[in-house]
Design a binder for these strands. Structure first.
Lengths: 389, 389
DNA sequence: ATGAAAGCGCTAACAT
DNA sequence: ATGTTAGCGCTTTCAT
């Protein structure tokens, strides 16, 4: 068991420069050995003996046909006569031949890898999206190369550059500003782009997003319906488009009932932004003054969890004393008690939809689509009418 | 805003067959236009005018050199004379030329994409690993193709097949049985494999895993130290190697103090397995009988959360009446109150270590390494000495 | 120091 | 129905 030293051991190679040195892997028994039997050209069989054929020419020799025919067996089976096809297929199976995607791609066939640049894969929200994307792409026989930008323009640009070289079939991009420079490069190479979580409609590209205005509105509506009239709005983070939208939605909900948004909503922020950190000051701010808030509207479930903990520590009961609403409906939201009322985004479906669009881009008559998903309010135990206080 | 119909709209393409139809993306202004100025061969400039050069031959013409030289500027700059190099570099920059990885790979250069097959990317545990891998690989200029197997052998095999064709540089694999068939194919092609979360030592491959025996032991030790003598062991799931190891560790901890594991640990299972679902029966079982359990040892934090909720619903106080220990240290564990005592696995580092090994495989004198990470016990408020009852 | 040319494995157009 | 062949864009000897 290795405890200390692991880091040193592993990261010794961090600055390793990529050389073309061949690597050596241990030789284990091959999965299938091309037997000398049942092969058209024994001489060819000997030539490629033991080691499986690395290219279609070898396969062709073994089957006693030409490369073109092998290619056809693989790509246009209907063009090949039954017996011939079977002969080739047998060799294919026997030898466990795998075709070379790089070579295929070089001839101009559409690539089957799709690039995906997200803000942070370790965030459950994005992980779900990635999973949905992956599943959707699998149905089209595609694989996803995923990279996190960490909201760092330089990191993003680096990833985009590599994806550009890799010759991906399409790019699924989620960046704060949807970096126009990055995008232009793909457009120039005629590589389709699917913008993720981009609220701004743009008809020149495919787009998949959650309707955050609606989400913000339904969360606020729920609280207003319950009778809340002073609501703490946590950490507005006005630089994140989707959060801006939610604010817009929330305020619209108030206005729709003839309420003055400025009167209803009290902006308080957790510091450091988002979850973690002491929610104390924020709670203090929200609950002090002549008109204390009776509810908290949080930017996400993690923040809501922080607030819940802070409230509990102060001896306040949820939802009796205060109501709390989250956003995202992460797995733990349902498991808390009281369960957390929150707004669910169909995260997985966002990813799947993006995959659908990627595949659709290949269709002759494709027109760009802007898909918007409606979030849904999940009412649980953390919200109730404000107390009589 | 599109609500209903989204699914139909998107998944219309699920059965889309991959055709080689070219796709059309809108033309936006290119990022850089190769100006007619400052170019060696004006005729060549006109030839590739407007559209950026798609290959090194074009670049070579524009710079008035040969392909070989352009290649050298890119890969062995030290071989090219200063002025020549600058001339080429200028064209490179001006035109925004991107090289074609497929073509490079065809010549035998080591690929810079790495395959990664995990059980489920939407699981925060794996998402963290993927993120660590991604970061580690980025330092070596590599990208990760990630795929989820969902513990389904067929899905896994499909992913492996595609990765095989894609010509990845190495494979990071986490499967329940580390599918020998799948592995053999990569070994046969001399593609290095890094086994993830594989407790079984095997010196013929690189391996990265968390020391689950130690994890199970330290969790049990903690409870035993506090004085607990009847501990509920949730959902043993004996088919998952890492859980088997944890059980081994826990029981060893009891034995080390001369206690009979069979006396100390009470196996109870959540149904359906893992988190979600009513923890009632399990809690009932654990707390009933002549010698009720005073603590719960959970297979992961989600399960612990379920148990915590169930206990709370029964009016039992944690840690006064019962102690609870989780596993994984997910983000919310620290935010609960009381905070959840749990065993932290350095998930991110596992991924990073795997990346380190991938890069190390390229070194001339590489020897396979089996890395084991020590988990750490994070003591929070959910554990205390058993009550006087 | 630079150029010329031979492939890498595949597809698709053309020839038979 | 099958065979032949010209590239795709790059790296890498080998000449110069």
């Amino acid at each position: 068991v290795c405890r200390t030293g692991v880091r040193a051991l592993v990261f010794r190679n961090e600055s390793l420069e990529i050389s073309n040195v061949p690597h050596f892997a241990p030789r284990l028994p091959a999965v299938a050995t091309p037997g000398g039997v049942d092969v058209a050209d024994p001489a060819a069989a000997r030539a490629v003996s033991r080691s499986r054929p690395t290219n279609m020419t070898d396969v062709a020799r073994l089957a006693g046909v030409s490369v073109g025919t092998v290619s056809n067996v693989l790509n246009n089976p209907q063009l090949v006569a039954g017996p011939t096809r079977e002969r080739v297929e047998r060799v294919l199976r026997r030898t466990g031949f795998v075709r070379n995607a790089a070579a295929r791609q070089l001839t101009g066939v559409m690539s089957s890898t799709v690039g995906c640049v997200l803000l942070d894969l370790s965030n459950p929200y994005f992980a779900e999206i990635a999973r949905g994307l992956e599943d959707g792409l699998a149905e089209g026989g595609c694989l996803a190369i995923v990279a996190s930008s960490d909201v760092d323009a330089e990191r993003e640009q680096r990833a985009l550059q590599m994806l550009l070289e890799a010759g991906i079939r399409a790019l699924v991009l989620n960046s704060l500003d949807n970096s126009p420079i990055g995008i232009a490069q793909f457009v120039a190479k005629d590589i389709p782009i699917i913008l993720l979580d981009d609220a701004r409609r743009r008809s020149d590209l495919c787009t998949v997003a959650s309707d955050c205005v609606a989400g913000g509105r339904m969360a606020a509506d729920h609280l207003l319906d319950l009778g809340h009239r002073r609501i703490a709005l946590l950490g507005p983070h006005l630089d994140i488009p989707s959060l801006v939208d939610r604010n817009v939605g929330s305020r619209a909900a108030a206005q729709a009932r003839g309420l003055e948004p400025g009167q209803v909503f009290v902006d308080v922020s957790l510091q450091p932004p988002d979850h973690h950190g002491d929610p104390g000051p924020a709670i203090e701010r929200a609950l002090s003054g002549p008109e204390p808030c009776t509810a908290f509207l949080c930017p996400n479930d993690m923040a809501a969890l922080t607030v819940l903990t802070g409230l509990q520590r102060r001896g306040l009961s949820v939802p009796r004393d205060v109501s709390v609403v989250g956003y995202d409906d992460l797995a733990f939201a349902a498991l808390l008690s009281p369960g957390l009322t929150t707004v669910r985004q169909s995260t997985y479906d966002l990813g799947r939809a993006a995959a659908g669009l990627v595949l659709a881009e290949a269709e002759r008559d494709h027109v760009h689509q802007q898909l918007t998903f409606a979030p849904t309010l999940v009412v649980r135990g953390s919200t109730a009418p404000p107390g009589p206080s």
